[in-house]
Amino acid sequence: MLVFAVGAFFYGVKIGSDKTEARLVENTKHLSGNKSGIAAAYQQQDLVSFYHTVFLPYREFQNEWFTVIHKLSANQLNDGSSALKELSSTAKQNYDDAEHAVVPKSSPLLESAQLQLLKSLKMFSEAAQRGAGSAKDMKAADLVKALVKDAYYLQAVKFAMGGQQDYYTAMLKWSASVNPNIPDNYEASAELSIQQWKSLPLTLKNKILADQLNARKSLMPFYPQDLTSRVDQFILSGQANAMKMKTVDAIVDLLVSTEAVRSGDFGDSKAQLYPKELLPQLPFFYPEKE
Score class of each variant (00 low, 15 high):
residue 22 A to S: 08
residue 201 P to R: 11
residue 55 F to I: 06
residue 1 M to T: 10
residue 189 S to M: 05
residue 10 F to A: 11
residue 73 S to R: 09
residue 268 D to T: 08
residue 172 L to C: 00
residue 28 T to L: 14
residue 1 M to G: 15
residue 224 P to D: 08
residue 103 V to Q: 04
residue 282 L to Y: 12
residue 243 M to S: 07
residue 238 G to T: 06
residue 70 H to V: 07
residue 203 T to S: 13
residue 53 T to H: 14
residue 101 A to C: 06
residue 75 N to T: 04
residue 263 S to T: 07
residue 32 S to I: 02
residue 167 Y to G: 08
residue 52 H to T: 09
residue 124 F to V: 01
residue 288 E to D: 08
residue 33 G to E: 04
residue 34 N to F: 15
residue 253 D to P: 07
residue 254 L to T: 12
residue 62 Q to H: 03
residue 182 I to R: 14
residue 222 F to T: 02
residue 24 L to M: 09
residue 34 N to Q: 10
residue 259 E to T: 15
residue 281 Q to D: 14
residue 19 K to L: 15
residue 179 N to K: 02
residue 207 K to P: 05
residue 229 S to H: 08
residue 189 S to W: 04
residue 137 D to C: 02
residue 76 Q to G: 03
residue 38 I to W: 13
residue 229 S to D: 14
residue 119 K to G: 01
residue 135 A to S: 01
residue 104 P to C: 05
residue 57 P to L: 04
residue 195 Q to I: 10
residue 53 T to M: 05
residue 163 G to T: 03
residue 230 R to S: 12
residue 149 K to M: 01
residue 240 A to S: 13
residue 19 K to V: 07
residue 267 G to F: 12
residue 229 S to W: 11
residue 145 K to H: 05
residue 171 M to Y: 10
residue 112 S to E: 00
residue 243 M to C: 13
residue 149 K to F: 00
residue 14 K to C: 10
residue 66 F to G: 02
residue 285 F to P: 12
residue 5 A to I: 06
residue 231 V to D: 05
residue 190 A to R: 11
residue 142 D to I: 02
residue 78 N to P: 04
residue 59 R to V: 03
residue 273 L to I: 15
residue 125 S to Y: 01
residue 260 A to V: 04
residue 19 K to E: 08
residue 39 A to G: 11
residue 76 Q to I: 10
residue 168 Y to K: 10
residue 259 E to R: 07
residue 64 E to Q: 08
residue 38 I to F: 15
residue 98 A to M: 12
residue 90 T to N: 11
residue 236 L to F: 13
residue 223 Y to A: 07
residue 47 L to E: 09
residue 148 V to K: 08
residue 43 Q to H: 10
residue 269 S to K: 07
residue 77 L to I: 06
residue 34 N to P: 12
residue 284 F to V: 15
residue 95 Y to S: 14
residue 248 V to L: 07
residue 227 L to D: 05
residue 94 N to C: 12
residue 242 A to F: 12
